[in-house]
Design a protein around this nucleic acid. Structure first.
Lengths: 199, 199, 199, 199
DNA sequence: GATGAATGAGATTTCATTCAT
DNA sequence: TATGAATGAAATCTCATTCAT
């Protein structure tokens, strides 16, 4: 057994959990599956985490706080609002691109799971919506975005589009090649900012 | 015990299931909860349904086929494509408006639950996406919609916005008064068709 | 599987529990042991009882309430106080005589187990002490018992002697033949009432 | 970390064990609780003791051998038998008076716990009973004690009274002030030797 | 001696499903 | 059809003990 620090062991277990959660879903994975995947004794999972739920919580929190930071970072730049939205969309898309299993778990098991975990993390999820709304709001003040659509509503809209896009990839409904990831960012921004209608 | 036909009994159980699934989530409801809520003997649930999952399946299928019909109906009309989309959006919004529990169950437990049920019903879900894509596609042929956004992609986008909207209501993140329902339909269409950007 | 009423099934499980608790002790018996001994499916124990602890609780409560009644009955008679104590002692001794396993369980796992169950049932246990104290107290008023020993203290003393006697039988330290049971009652009363000392 | 001898470390752990056993009961204390209470590393408990049970064993044996010695000492004196019993009662009562936690543990977890530890230490426990019986027996030979009560039986009786008394203190059923401890010794002897009945 | 991470065998409890009536 | 008792396969979580350093 290689000597690992506590932090490394936690990570080892978290990484394994991502894989099995992504593969089988949270409810269908037993703690034993996580331990097996991590090549670690059963009890060690409980040495590092209070419960199976706790593992998912941590997975979510770690990732989501990065998203929050990314949105704040985008907002802090001096670029035009549509570009800020593009940065946010790009961050989320790249998150999926480079770690599709983790994003699958977060979307399927947390973000979109109203009852169990969604409720637990609702406030954190909502913070992201609010930060995006702020970007929209500033765009409205600057005269870049229309004012007859509520900023928070627009934010929900924007996030909904991205999450549906990721769902499409997760379910294998839309192609997920490198080119698709590349194009997706702009497509999202174009759709949301310019709309489908020609004029 | 009132004399009920078999069909009425099934409905009685299905309706009860909607309420408990909405309240507790599918995984947290026991078959006994459904029976209690339906004021029916425990074993009777198994008399009418093969399994707990089967109950959810039926709930989904019944509702979703109405959606499919609604989309087909909208498409069959001779109205302009944005109006067709408005009809679809309106149908889904009204579905929530008049039976929020059922729609909550369908979205939370099926549509957004990739692993278990999502996979089972993927094809049916996808049919809705495809039918919406068809509306977009026709709009593109008619020169109403831009052609540089793939029709299926646009469809996903459109559906994603609506589902996020419903999620907002379900989670209590956005106000759900009658006026909100009234306005939501147009807001969705405006956002998707015209975009956020002023021009 | 014989058709049994719910009450009979409960009893079947309770009786089996007495046997295994007596044999292995509460902490060493698994619920599976109870089910096996009762020749019943594992889950049925949980159908009838909330938990393993709950089974023991019921065992105790049923028996102890008989004891309470017996003490009240003895007190209600118009016999002299030492005879009343004799009746109580006789009841407890006979309880052991005719159902040694149950009494073993109650003494070892409840009455003498300060921490876990003792605390839970302390009030009920104490009621027995208080009722016995009342008999002593009346004897003091009548001039039959000395007054320089507190009635409650005397009651504890009396009960302590009996419980130690039963412990002796339980542990196999003193002979437990029919004659011993017969004699024990009077021996207890003699010791407590007349004392060891000659005068 | 202070430099401690091995003997001191053992004592440190034993003393901590007494406190947690008294507080939570043997079955509810984890080895980690002992280590925490002793402010010692988890593994050190296993360095000094073979098992958790082993800790309790040692606690019991150390104390009980003192009791054995005390009884022998009392018997060796040339005082009248009732005084000898008084010495024994006084020793046990003082044991509780000056270390109630330890006595609580010994009574609740060993002496009164028939199954697990009671059996293990039965012989040692019984030795105390026998030594007390010897005192009674001598009293009978000397014509101080009645002969129609078996000496061993009388010994059980005597010990039962004391243990019930301690149980009363442990459970908080009888007052445990200094005066109560002072009086208890004589009360026990009076009750056992003279009996409750006036004559 | 000292440390505390690692192990894994249980034990309790839950509950979907079956089945006898 | 209707009932609800009966079944037993999991699944989670605990924790005494071991062990590598």
């Amino acid at each position: 057994m290689a000597r690992e620090t506590a932090v490394e062991r936690r990570r080892q277990i978290l990484d394994a959990a991502v894989r099995v959660f992504a593969r089988q879903g949270f409810h269908s994975t037993r703690v034993a599956d996580i331990a097996d995947e991590a090549e670690v004794a059963y009890g060690l999972v409980y040495h590092y985490f209070d419960s199976k739920e706790n593992v998912l919580d941590e997975l979510f929190r770690q990732r989501w706080s990065l998203l929050i930071e990314a949105i704040k970072g985008a907002d802090a730049s001096s670029r035009p609002p549509p570009d800020k939205l593009g940065t946010v969309a790009g961050f989320i898309i790249d998150s999926y691109r480079y770690d599709p299993e983790l994003m699958k778990v977060i979307i399927v098991e947390v973000t979109r799971a109203a009852n169990s975990f969604g409720q637990t993390h609702l406030e954190q999820i909502n913070e992201a919506y609010r930060l995006i709304a702020q970007i929209v709001s500033e765009g409205q003040k600057d005269g870049v975005f229309r004012r007859d659509v509520d900023a928070y509503f627009a934010s929900m809209t924007f996030y909904g589009v991205i999450e549906q896009l990721l769902s499409g990839w997760i379910f294998g409904l839309i192609p997920a090649g490198e080119a698709d990831f590349e194009g997706a960012r702009d497509l999202v921004v174009t759709t949301i900012c310019d709309g489908l209608a020609l004029r």
